[in-house]
């Protein structure tokens, strides 16, 4: 037929892709062989080749965690033999290399461990930049818990104000509150910022209101309820907090939500737990609520049954 395009079929494409893949596997095997051969022959005396050969392996496969540890041993030995100036250069190069790896493999445990290890070896780590890198990664995947954990590591080792981090969790929660990590980050910072009991209580009350917007928007979402549970637990432990009144108000709000969503397990469970905390509610009422939960959410029957012992 004249004028009709000949297009490659899916089989042809798949075949071409398979050939490429096989070639890649072959290349990888040869890289690994070079690395192991060198490792055997050098007998624990490391040099630049040790670094470059292991780097090639990790570029292809960062999950090969013993190679990361091998690199740690190299740096440890270099520390004995090299000047600090040269060492710092090597560390900076390592940071750059890790950065490239993270971009391609943002969820590999070993890469993140290695970054933490190197960043503390640096004379002065640019923590501001580290934070920015994290924010960039979290824009791509807001639930990347490695990244959230690294942020906590940064806070621990830098002078970045905690308030700034709190603000960051607020914006992240506003983007999408179905995010356990950002709620958790909040709960780990708040007690550090508010050391004065009275201020802390006021802030926690604000937080109750904040999280209420989330629970009313999506009562099925567990992340905001877990934060709510943390708030109840925390306020209870502040001496002289008069927390019962606050919990009573919470109960009232939660009951209002039950009215709107009578079949949703979360507000019912939370209202039950609040009643247990406040105390002095009739046994029958609590039992009815437990039985209702068992009916609505049979998967967690044993947990609900265990609550019978607490009332």
């Amino acid at each position: 037929m004249h004028g009709v395009l000949k297009v490659r079929t899916t089989e042809e494409k798949a075949k071409a892709a398979r050939i490429l893949e096989l070639k890649k596997i072959e290349e990888y095997n040869s890289i690994v062989k070079k690395y192991t051969d060198n490792r055997e022959s050098e007998q624990g005396k490391y040099n630049e080749t040790s670094l470059s050969l292991s780097q090639k392996v990790l570029e292809e496969n960062p999950e090969f965690y013993s190679v990361w540890n091998y690199r740690k041993s190299i740096f440890n030995q270099f520390k004995e033999t090299k000047e600090n100036e040269e060492l710092q250069k090597l560390y900076l190069n390592e940071m750059k290399f890790i950065e490239e790896c993270i971009q391609r493999f943002p969820k590999s445990y070993w890469i993140w461990y290695h970054r933490k290890w190197i960043s503390l070896k640096l004379d002065s780590c640019d923590w501001e930049r580290e934070t920015k890198l994290c924010s960039k990664l979290l824009n791509l995947d807001l639930r990347n818990f490695h990244c959230w954990s690294y942020r906590r590591f940064i806070i621990q080792h830098s002078n970045i104000p905690l308030e700034k981090e709190l603000e960051y969790t607020t914006t992240k929660i506003e983007q999408n509150f179905s995010n356990y990590s950002s709620w958790h980050q909040r709960s780990s910072i708040l007690p550090k910022i508010y050391t004065d009991a009275e201020e802390f209580i006021a802030k926690l009350q604000e937080e109750f209101e904040f999280v209420r917007n989330a629970t009313f928007t999506e009562p099925k979402d567990s992340s905001s309820w877990i934060y709510h549970k943390w708030l109840v637990h925390t306020i209870k432990q502040i001496p002289n907090s008069n927390y019962i009144d606050i919990l009573k108000n919470e109960l009232e709000q939660t009951n209002e939500l039950i009215e709107l969503e009578p079949d949703c397990k979360w507000p019912i469970l939370i209202s039950l737990l609040l009643k247990i905390e406040i105390g002095a509610y009739p046994q029958d009422e609590l039992k009815d609520q437990i039985n209702l939960l068992i009916k609505l959410d049979n998967d967690h029957i044993n947990y609900y049954k265990s609550l019978f012992n607490k009332i």
Binding site: R212, N213, F216, T217, Q253, E256, L257, L260, E261
Partner: peptide, 10 residues
């Protein structure tokens, strides 16, 4: 209001 938020979502 909270109630309105719930209704829109619903």
């Amino acid at each position: 209001s909270l109630r309105e938020k719930r209704l829109i979502m619903k």
